[in-house]
Design a protein around this nucleic acid. Structure first.
Lengths: 194, 194
DNA sequence: TTGGTTATTGACCGATTGGACAGTAAGTCA
DNA sequence: TGACTTACTGTCCAATCGGTCAATAACCAA
């Protein structure tokens, strides 16, 4: 953990505040004033630390992505076989404190901007690329390449779909169900014997 | 087709115009003025036919849903076996003219409002319920009930996920791939021999 | 202390937008 | 024709919001 200046800490506080507001209000409902209020500061300060609202959201998305990445990486580090790597990716994407309706709302709202916001689109591309790469590291040793690619698309789309589903109707999926359904989608030959 | 009054026709035109703008601009970017311009009318007329912007979007979502429903139902009507019903649902959800990036953007934008718009949430619930019911009509004869429910969740989440994927990175999935991946997810025992 | 940088505030502005409304044209029915 | 309803337009308004700016406070180095 590198030394963090006052301004880095402040920026962090504002990102967190923005993410909290985002969960409740969506991108459009998240005004600079609400973010400031959530952080216990004045609106001016937000634009003191971020050039614009768009930049704030970009950094919020980058950070949310970083948290998710760390979760998955922590599990991946403990995995030794390809099968375990697949399970790590899947379980990492459904940890209960992230796979929760408010968080899904925030992601959904950020994703809605992707088609019209180049910066967010870049972050989104990175997310998909990493997901694909993580899955492929488990699939390549077990399947022919073309099969592996299809499987990766299948699993990552399913994960996205389950997130979306939870965002749209809270309570319709539990983390355990999501993991069970996704593991089953791997197929019996890919999931490690429990 | 029932007789349609002038006002019904006008409403229809405005809904279509709104859906077209929605594809380009998203819910927030879709202004009453833009909708009016797209329909070749003045802004006042939009509020003459719809009580509010929210009501306009609700009806746009209802109509988009209706189109999708008709597509699926047309295929379902030709299906005779449970397996054929499953294929009908899947192929109906990936017809090339609907499974296209602009349409996905529009849906994504509408879905983003769901957590904060009761009327849209109701439409969304209907959509999910119908999807579930359609899938169950194919699955129930072939699987024990608890298995069928899980399978239905799996397939519908996968379909949602593939739509989301296409909206987020246009060109990353073709309708053929989407159908192939989803059919494969059914499992060999459920998909009809080709 | 002093001088300069950074942190923070609150006032202000221009632009946008949903919606209200008054008024006009056009059609309908007696 | 004339009364009444419906279609439609353009204007206007209040509210909101992102962003600028000037002013001030706090901090820090010399």
């Amino acid at each position: 953990m590198a030394l963090r200046s006052i301004s880095d800490i402040r920026r962090q506080e504002l990102r967190s505040a923005a993410f909290r507001v985002l969960q409740r209000e969506g991108v459009h409902g998240t005004t600079l004033e609400k973010v400031a209020a959530e952080a216990g500061a004045s609106k001016g300060i937000v634009l003191h630390y971020f050039r614009s609202k768009a930049e704030l959201f970009e950094q919020v998305m980058r950070e949310a992505n970083m948290v998710l990445r760390q979760r998955v990486n922590a599990r991946l580090a403990k995995a030794t076989t390809p099968q375990e790597r697949l399970v790590a990716v899947i379980e990492g994407n459904f940890e209960p404190d992230m796979f929760a309706p408010p968080v899904c709302h925030a992601w959904l709202s950020l994703c809605e901007q992707v088609p019209r916001d180049l910066a967010l689109a870049r972050v989104q591309r990175v997310i998909h690329a990493r997901m694909h790469s993580n899955l492929m590291s488990g699939l390549r040793p077990l399947l022919p390449d073309s099969e592996a690619k299809l499987k990766a698309l299948q699993i990552s789309a399913l994960i996205d779909g389950l997130w979306l589903r939870l965002g749209l109707s809270p309570g319709s999926v539990t983390p355990e169900q999501a993991i069970a359904v996704t593991l089953r989608t791997l197929g019996p030959e890919l999931s490690p014997r429990s």
